[in-house]
Write a protein that binds this DNA or RNA. Structure first.
Length: 824
RNA sequence: GCCGAAGUGGCGGAAUGGUAGACGCGCUGGUCUCAAAAACCAGUGGGGGAAACCCCGUGCCGGUUCAACUCCGGCCUUCGGCACCA
């Protein structure tokens, strides 16, 4: 009888079909069973699955399968983030309708995900571009609008000329380019929709502390992005008109050192002061110098200070001093109030500006153990010290001075303590077609009117094609934009902008709990059972955008009284990137490896095993074709273990376990030890080492069966443990072999194996003998040797004696079961 | 500049303060074969030695400890985030 070959294609097709027929992984709401919500970031369907998806979804699948087998009721859903620009770009280049392109790609990636054998509850599959989903995206927009959290305003926006739309701040990279297409964005003043995420800045920042199980780097990024600073708002008075101008400063302790005053170039006062005066031409020239440069260039640290005197002065409230007003390139319109007090002695930027324009420098903070003189300074002193030349505050420590000055400002009505955030409101409108329409109607008589909930969804018409230049057809489609005003019934015009796709993905994890609910975005009792997500898994590239927006949405939902928790994701695992030859895979580099090819050639099990074995989840890992062959070789080894070593043996030809028991006992011990180690490692997401322990067990079973006749029950325990432990990683082959060895039902329904502590302990251990901390010998000793026995054995062994020589033994340290260190 | 993460064989990577390099890849040798592939077995950090063994070795310099890849202090390098944010 010859053993069958490992035919991954046949095996995988067979089990895939069976699992689908049986809906094996559908989640059921059952309050009597502890739940686990395992979520992987859903894909944007731009084609078949790529390696990043595979790596990500393998992590989630192991967590989900492991949790199922430990008795949890697991929700492990999948869906598609299916609105977005690439669909429109495809339409422009190939003429396919975005809807068609998107649905075809969904079919492709779904096929790959199914081939990979992920244990998803496919009955909950969702797609954000379908009306039953975006109806609720629109509903959430209306809720935001009702609470004043969605508003329309004129703002300087980031315009990407290539994408033909505005972008949120978060979608502009730090070099000023569009995160999608790399084009440098321009600044345009436009009337746009925003979500008032800044209202939640403090909560979003404070609650970062609740996210104990998130990676530290993500928390840091979130904190940086929110960018809180403590300081004061101070009111200065303009000489010419007497009007009040507010500034924000983090250094109220330097208020007495102000020698000039700065306005952002976009500050409305700049125009007013310049218009019709002698300096108008100069301001115009200054504006020209700035125009055509991105904000990034303008505010780059290397950029030279540039500005213009505006012909007016302000009075400093604390000392009544009159200082000149300038506009300067480095002052940002959108941070603080767009106006700054300048203290050249204690701020490097102001120092450079003062140097260029011959403005005075006044020292008001003296550093410890040093006396600064304004004339000798080569750079600003920004550290703490003692306040001088500051009226009643002279001699005060600058740190205490901050609070003291704020107290003075507040008591006189000159200002107040204030915090500032770097975070800006979230710009959500897009001048694009392939997105959820913003449910708003503009009526000449009634103004901006929300679409009534009963009229949702506002359907995105799919019978339109992109207008000239790839522009959105919505503003040109009368049947879309013509509407009756919900309030007065008169002729009105529908909003033709659509929502940023990050809105769609900010709440999808709520929808999974009740994806078919037509009466609400989610069923409340289902949310109470399943949420929050116990384990969220995804790429680090979403550390700011998606995660911050999702946290914001969750807090808004809580304030709406729809849920009663603050944070959506209890645990977060950020996976690293898979690279090829050290570089990000991209079509232009020609270094893309396609999962589908490997599934075909080596099988889904091989691919799954390899991406998990490559290294720790959070590290970047480089793809190796030889490595993936190795994973395949291992599965072949497991296959032959069962068919060539185990199955023939189980027909008889065994040896009683009692005789020459130590060989058998060692085998059993390793089996139990492996269960312990794999369990521990899966719990801590160390899948690479978990797999290596299974490999060691397999290697040892080969030895065990080669050295002599195995004991049937020992071999059976070892082999079934291998299959049981391997199942979450390589579900198809494990199921096939489980069936072949006559296992009970499906291996994926078996309880996770348990182990016997007593058996797991080895009978013999290697005792390391050190002399003065250097290893001098290794002895094999019984595991239950007492410390005294170990000490005795170590002192007697020849190698140790050689190094001890005639020296006096000063100390002997015994680490039970492991090591003896003799100090001489 | 600030914040965070990481530096270990030819490579991916292992090591609750206690055997550095598990497991895998690659390479070398052996078994099987007419031969090869596959499979199975063995070896594989560097240097020295016939061998037993010895010396060196986890980015660098110090420190704590009987014992440091691991803890502490100071650097260097790489990657990521923030950055003229007042």
């Amino acid at each position: 009888m010859t053993a069958p070959e490992y035919d991954h294609k046949e095996i995988e097709a067979k089990w895939r079909k069976r699992w689908e027929e049986e809906s094996s992984y559908a989640a059921v709401e059952d309050a009597s069973i502890p739940k686990k919500y395992v979520l992987v970031m859903f894909p944007y369907p731009s084609g078949p699955a790529h390696m990043g998806h595979v790596a990500n979804y393998c992590l989630g699948d192991v967590v989900a399968r492991f949790s199922m087998r430990r008795g949890f009721n697991v929700l492990h859903p999948m869906g598609y983030d299916s609105f977005g620009l690439p669909a429109e770009n495809a339409a422009i280049s190939s003429g396919v309708h975005p809807a068609e392109w998107t649905r075809e790609n969904i079919a492709l990636i779904r096929e790959d995900l199914k081939k990979l054998g992920y244990a998803y509850d496919w009955t909950r599959e969702l797609s954000t571009c379908e009306p039953p989903y975006y109806k609720w995206t629109q509903w959430l927009f209306l809720k935001m609008f009702e609470r004043g959290l969605a508003y329309k305003a004129d703002a300087a926006t980031n315009w990407c000329s290539s994408c033909g739309t505005v972008l949120a701040n978060e979608q502009v990279l730090s070099d000023g380019s569009c995160e999608r297409c790399g084009t440098f964005v321009d600044i345009r003043w436009l009337n746009q929709w925003f979500f008032r995420i800044t209202d939640y800045a403090e909560r979003l920042l404070e609650d970062v502390d609740l996210l104990e199980e998130w990676p530290e780097r993500v928390l840091t990024m979130q904190r940086n992005w929110i960018g809180k600073s403590d300081g004061a708002e101070v009111v200065f008075t303009l000489e010419s008109s007497g009007e009040k101008i507010e500034i924000y400063t983090t250094r109220p302790d330097t208020l007495y050192g102000v020698t000039f005053f700065l306005l952002a170039p976009e500050h409305p006062l700049v125009d007013r002061l310049a218009r019709g005066t002698a300096i108008e031409a100069e301001v115009e020239a200054f504006r020209k110098r700035l125009a055509g440069r991105s904000e990034f260039e303008r505010t780059a640290m290397e950029a030279e200070k540039d500005g213009v005197f505006l012909g007016d002065h302000v009075f400093n409230p604390v000392n009544g001093e009159r200082v000149p007003v300038y506009t300067a390139n480095f002052v940002l319109k959108e941070y603080g109030t767009g106006a700054v007090m300048a203290v050249p002695a204690h701020d490097q930027r102001d120092f450079e500006f003062a140097g260029k324009y011959g403005l005075p420098v006044r020292v008001v903070i003296q550093p410890p153990g040093e006396t600064l003189a304004a004339g000798d300074m080569e750079e600003a002193y920004e550290g703490p010290g003692v306040m001088v030349d500051s009226g009643d505050f002279d001699g005060t420590d600058s740190e205490q001075g901050k609070a003291a000055v704020i107290e003075l400002l507040e008591s006189r009505g000159w200002g107040r303590g204030a915090v500032n955030y770097r975070l800006r409101d979230w710009l959500v409108s897009r001048q694009r077609y392939w997105g959820a329409p913003i449910p708003i109607i503009y009526c000449e008589r009634c103004g901006t009117v929300p679409v009534p909930e009963s009229d949702l969804p506002v359907i995105l018409p799919e019978d339109l094609s992109l207008a000239e230049g790839g522009k959105s057809p919505l503003p040109l489609s009368e049947s879309f934009y013509k509407a009756a005003c919900p309030t007065c019934g008169g002729d009105a015009r529908r909003e033709t902008d659509t929502m940023d796709t990050f809105v769609d993905s900010s709440w999808y994890y709520f929808r999974y709990v009740s994806p078919l609910d037509d009466s609400a975005p989610f069923d409340r009792s289902a949310v109470e059972y399943w949420m929050p997500v116990d384990q969220y898994i995804g790429g680090i590239e979403h550390a700011i955008l998606h995660l911050l927006y999702s946290r914001f949405f969750t807090k808004v939902l809580r304030d709406l009284g729809l849920i009663d928790f603050e944070e959506p994701f209890s645990n977060l695992l950020c996976q690293g990137m898979i690279t090829k030859d050290g570089a990000k895979m991209s079509k232009s580099k020609g270094n893309v490896v396609t999962p589908g090819d490997y599934i075909e050639r080596l099988g889904a099990d091989t691919l799954r095993l390899y991406v998990l074995f490559m290294g720790p989840p959070e590290l970047n890992k480089d793809w190796s074709d030889q490595g993936v062959e190795g994973a395949h070789r291992f599965l072949g080894r497991v296959w032959r273990l069962v068919h060539e070593r185990y199955l023939p043996q189980s027909n008889g030809n065994t040896e009683e376990a009692g005789e020459k028991a130590s060989r058998h006992r060692a085998m059993r011990s390793l089996t139990h030890r492996t269960i312990a180690m794999v369990t521990r490692d899966v719990e801590r997401f160390a899948f690479n080492t978990a797999i290596s322990f299974i490999m060691e067990l397999v290697n040892e079973i080969y030895h065990y069966t080669s050295e002599g006749p195995p004991a049937r029950e020992v071999l059976e325990e070892a082999v079934s443990s291998v299959l049981s432990l391997l199942a979450p990683f390589a579900p198809f082959i494990s199921e096939e072999l489980w069936t072949a060895v006559g296992g009970d039902g499906s291996v994926h329904r078996q309880p996770w194996p348990s182990y016997d502590e007593e058996l797991a302990r080895p009978e013999e251990v290697t005792l390391v003998v050190q002399v003065n901390g250097k290893v001098r010998d290794r002895l094999t000793v019984p595991a239950d040797s007492s410390d005294e026995e170990l000490r005795g054995l170590a002192l007697e062994c020849e190698n140790a004696r050689r190094f001890i020589g005639g020296s006096e033994i000063r100390k002997v340290i015994v680490v039970p079961g492991k090591l003896v260190n003799i100090v001489v």
